[in-house]
Simulated assay, not measured.
Amino acid sequence: MSRARGNLALLSLFLATFVLGSTELVIVGVLDLIAADTGVTVGTAGVLVTAYALGLAIGGPALTAATIRLGRRTLLWISMLAFLLATLTMVVTDGFAFLLVARAVAGSLHGVFVGAAFVAVGSFVPPERMGRAIAVILGGIAVSTAMGVPIGTLVGRSLGWRGAFVAIIAVGAVVLAGLLLLMPAVSTGGAQGLRSQARAAFAPRVLVMLAIGVLLLGGQFTVFTYITPFLLKVTGLSDAAVSGFLLAYGVATAVGTFAGGWAADRDASRALVVANVVLVLALGLLYVAGAVPALVAVALLVWGLVGFGLVPALQYRVATLAGPARDLAASLPASAVNAGIAAGALLGGRALSGSGLPAVVLAGLAMCLACLPLTWLTGRWAAR
Rank of each mutant, 00 (worst) to 15 (best):
T378S: 11
A275T: 05
V278Y: 04
L31E: 04
A351P: 07
L109Y: 08
V296F: 11
A9G: 11
G340V: 09
T320A: 11
L207P: 12
L100I: 07
P204W: 04
A319S: 14
P293Q: 10
R132F: 15
A259C: 14
V121C: 02
L314F: 05
S123Y: 03
A345W: 13
A319M: 15
E24L: 09
A102F: 08
C368H: 05
G163H: 03
L301K: 06
F202E: 12
V47P: 00
S2A: 10
L216W: 05
D239R: 13
L56A: 12
L154P: 00
L99W: 05
L246C: 00
I141H: 11
V174E: 09
A53S: 11
A254S: 15
G349Y: 06
G140F: 10
R380A: 15
I227G: 03
A291S: 15
P293K: 05
G139K: 09
A173M: 14
S158R: 13
R69K: 12
R326K: 14
A82P: 09
A51D: 03
A167W: 01
V101S: 06
Y249D: 06
V42N: 05
G304Q: 10
A45L: 07
P184V: 00
A142L: 12
P204L: 07
T64G: 02
L194T: 02
A322M: 02
A66Y: 08
G21D: 09
T17F: 07
L301H: 04
L8T: 12
D32V: 05
L210H: 04
S12C: 08
N338L: 00
M80K: 04
M367A: 15
I227C: 09
V298H: 08
G160L: 14
R157A: 15
N7F: 12
V234C: 13
I134K: 02
S12H: 00
L357A: 07
L377K: 08
L362H: 01
G152Q: 03
A51F: 12
L207T: 13
A142R: 01
L109C: 09
V112D: 04
I68W: 01
A248S: 14
V234T: 15
V26F: 06
G261W: 02
R5M: 13
G304E: 14
V143F: 08
P358M: 11
I341Y: 01
A294G: 03
L314W: 01
V40I: 14
R132P: 11
I151H: 11
V251M: 14
V19F: 11
G250E: 06
L281S: 10
A259N: 10
